[in-house]
Amino acid sequence: LFAGEEVVRTTASIFTISYGIKLFFCGIIAAGAMVIPGISGSLLLMIMGEYYNILGYIKSFNILPLGFFAVGTGIGLILVSKGINILLNKYRSYTLNFIVGIIIVSLVQIVETLFIK
């Protein structure tokens, strides 16, 4: 956790528009992942290297980067939910099978993590 806090301190002091655009797209991806069951939005943020930065922005109430992330999150929620709605209307069985597949793979991964060392 201390390494994450150091990342927050170094990144929080330098904010550019290009970094804001990155936060915007991270918000879209994280929100989209949170809508689909079995995919963790916070894990994707960790993979993209922004999880601890966003926690730091929340902790220090840094509005500008949180604004970029929030707008991206809102747009991501709308786009993914509309996309899933379209897919469910056109390809209902394929979409449901895909979602069930993601859930099953997530459960297998959890069981594997718990019982296989």
Rank of each mutant, 00 (worst) to 15 (best):
L1E: 02
F2K: 15
A3I: 12
G4T: 04
V7F: 03
V7P: 00
V7A: 00
V7S: 06
V8Y: 03
T11F: 09
S13H: 15
I14K: 13
T16R: 13
T16W: 11
I17D: 15
S18H: 08
Y19A: 10
G20K: 08
L23E: 06
F24W: 08
C26L: 08
C26T: 09
C26V: 07
I28W: 05
I28R: 00
A30Q: 05
A30R: 05
A31T: 14
V35P: 03
P37T: 14
S40A: 07
G41T: 00
L44F: 12
L45Q: 01
L45N: 01
M46S: 14
M46W: 09
I47H: 04
Y51T: 08
I54L: 15
L55S: 00
G56C: 06
Y57K: 07
Y57P: 05
I58R: 10
I58V: 15
F61D: 09
L64W: 04
P65W: 05
P65F: 11
F69G: 02
L79C: 05
K82Q: 13
I84R: 03
I84A: 10
N85E: 15
L88Y: 02
K90A: 09
R92M: 08
L96K: 00
L96P: 02
F98T: 13
F98W: 15
I99R: 06
I102W: 08
L107G: 11
Q109R: 06
E112W: 01
L114H: 12
F115M: 10
I116V: 14
K117T: 04
